[in-house]
Amino acid sequence: MSLSEDEVRHVAALARLALDDDEIAALTPQLADILAYAAEVGAVATDDVAPMTHPLGLEDVTRPDVPGERLPADAVLAAAPDRVGDRFGVPRIVEEDA
Protein backbone atom coordinates (compact mmCIF):
# COMPACT_ATOMS: atom_id res chain seq x y z
CA MET A 1 0.00 0.00 0.00
CA SER A 2 1.64 3.17 -1.08
CA LEU A 3 0.33 6.46 0.13
CA SER A 4 1.87 9.76 -0.78
CA GLU A 5 2.24 12.73 1.51
CA ASP A 6 0.06 14.69 -0.90
CA GLU A 7 -2.70 12.15 -0.52
CA VAL A 8 -2.36 12.42 3.25
CA ARG A 9 -2.61 16.20 2.94
CA HIS A 10 -5.74 15.84 0.85
CA VAL A 11 -7.31 13.54 3.46
CA ALA A 12 -6.32 15.94 6.25
CA ALA A 13 -8.07 18.74 4.37
CA LEU A 14 -11.21 16.64 3.98
CA ALA A 15 -11.06 15.75 7.68
CA ARG A 16 -10.32 19.40 8.48
CA LEU A 17 -7.24 18.63 10.54
CA ALA A 18 -4.37 21.10 10.58
CA LEU A 19 -1.21 18.99 10.37
CA ASP A 20 2.25 20.43 9.84
CA ASP A 21 4.83 18.92 7.51
CA ASP A 22 6.47 16.90 10.28
CA GLU A 23 3.14 15.47 11.31
CA ILE A 24 2.31 14.60 7.72
CA ALA A 25 5.69 12.94 7.31
CA ALA A 26 5.26 10.92 10.49
CA LEU A 27 1.68 9.98 9.74
CA THR A 28 2.15 8.87 6.15
CA PRO A 29 4.00 5.56 6.81
CA GLN A 30 1.75 4.77 9.78
CA LEU A 31 -1.38 5.21 7.71
CA ALA A 32 0.17 3.22 4.88
CA ASP A 33 0.85 0.32 7.26
CA ILE A 34 -2.63 0.39 8.74
CA LEU A 35 -4.26 0.62 5.32
CA ALA A 36 -2.12 -2.21 4.00
CA TYR A 37 -3.34 -4.33 6.88
CA ALA A 38 -6.94 -3.20 6.49
CA ALA A 39 -6.77 -3.92 2.78
CA GLU A 40 -6.73 -7.63 3.67
CA VAL A 41 -10.53 -7.42 3.53
CA GLY A 42 -10.06 -7.22 -0.23
CA ALA A 43 -9.03 -10.88 -0.25
CA VAL A 44 -12.53 -11.97 0.73
CA ALA A 45 -14.91 -12.94 -2.06
CA THR A 46 -17.98 -10.81 -1.48
CA ASP A 47 -19.91 -11.18 -4.73
CA ASP A 48 -23.61 -10.82 -3.96
CA VAL A 49 -22.91 -9.97 -0.33
CA ALA A 50 -24.70 -6.86 0.85
CA PRO A 51 -22.82 -4.50 3.17
CA MET A 52 -24.00 -4.83 6.75
CA THR A 53 -25.18 -1.60 8.24
CA HIS A 54 -27.08 -2.72 11.31
CA PRO A 55 -26.73 -5.89 13.38
CA LEU A 56 -30.39 -6.37 14.27
CA GLY A 57 -31.91 -5.46 10.91
CA LEU A 58 -34.44 -3.14 12.50
CA GLU A 59 -36.77 -1.22 10.20
CA ASP A 60 -39.04 1.79 10.38
CA VAL A 61 -38.13 3.15 13.76
CA THR A 62 -39.79 6.55 13.95
CA ARG A 63 -41.27 8.88 16.52
CA PRO A 64 -44.63 10.63 16.45
CA ASP A 65 -44.69 14.31 15.41
CA VAL A 66 -45.14 15.44 18.99
CA PRO A 67 -43.15 18.23 20.64
CA GLY A 68 -40.49 17.16 23.11
CA GLU A 69 -38.27 18.79 25.63
CA ARG A 70 -36.15 21.69 24.44
CA LEU A 71 -33.03 23.00 26.07
CA PRO A 72 -33.06 26.53 27.43
CA ALA A 73 -31.07 28.73 25.01
CA ASP A 74 -28.55 29.44 27.73
CA ALA A 75 -27.87 25.77 28.34
CA VAL A 76 -26.75 25.41 24.74
CA LEU A 77 -25.00 28.76 24.46
CA ALA A 78 -23.21 28.38 27.79
CA ALA A 79 -20.74 26.04 26.13
CA ALA A 80 -20.03 28.31 23.15
CA PRO A 81 -16.35 29.20 22.78
CA ASP A 82 -17.53 32.47 21.23
CA ARG A 83 -20.92 34.04 21.54
CA VAL A 84 -22.56 36.90 19.64
CA GLY A 85 -25.66 37.74 21.64
CA ASP A 86 -27.89 34.69 21.44
CA ARG A 87 -25.87 33.19 18.61
CA PHE A 88 -22.69 31.16 18.26
CA GLY A 89 -19.87 33.32 16.94
CA VAL A 90 -17.40 32.13 14.33
CA PRO A 91 -14.66 33.94 12.44
CA ARG A 92 -15.15 34.94 8.82
CA ILE A 93 -16.48 32.07 6.69
CA VAL A 94 -14.52 31.83 3.45
CA GLU A 95 -16.16 28.89 1.75
CA GLU A 96 -19.73 28.89 0.58
CA ASP A 97 -22.42 26.66 1.93
CA ALA A 98 -22.70 23.32 0.13
Binding site: R63, D65, V66, P67, G68, E69, R70, L71, A73, V76, L77, G85, D86, R87, F88
Partner: peptide, 29 residues
Protein backbone atom coordinates in the same frame (compact mmCIF):
# COMPACT_ATOMS: atom_id res chain seq x y z
CA UNK B 1 -44.71 22.12 8.09
CA UNK B 2 -44.60 19.32 10.62
CA UNK B 3 -45.05 20.32 14.25
CA UNK B 4 -41.55 19.10 15.12
CA UNK B 5 -38.19 18.74 13.46
CA UNK B 6 -36.98 15.77 11.44
CA UNK B 7 -35.01 14.04 14.21
CA UNK B 8 -36.17 15.60 17.47
CA UNK B 9 -39.19 17.11 19.18
CA UNK B 10 -38.20 20.76 18.76
CA UNK B 11 -40.82 23.01 17.13
CA UNK B 12 -40.38 24.19 13.55
CA UNK B 13 -41.91 27.62 14.08
CA UNK B 14 -40.44 30.46 12.08
CA UNK B 15 -39.08 33.65 13.56
CA UNK B 16 -38.50 32.67 17.20
CA UNK B 17 -35.61 34.09 19.25
CA UNK B 18 -32.26 32.56 18.22
CA UNK B 19 -31.29 29.19 19.64
CA UNK B 20 -34.54 28.71 21.54
CA UNK B 21 -35.94 25.85 19.47
CA UNK B 22 -33.02 23.58 20.15
CA UNK B 23 -32.26 20.40 22.05
CA UNK B 24 -29.23 18.07 22.30
CA UNK B 25 -30.12 16.47 18.96
CA UNK B 26 -30.49 19.48 16.67
CA UNK B 27 -27.72 21.47 18.32
CA UNK B 28 -25.33 18.60 17.65
CA UNK B 29 -24.46 17.84 21.27
Amino acid sequence: STATKMWCGCPTTFGDAPNTNVCPVCSGQ
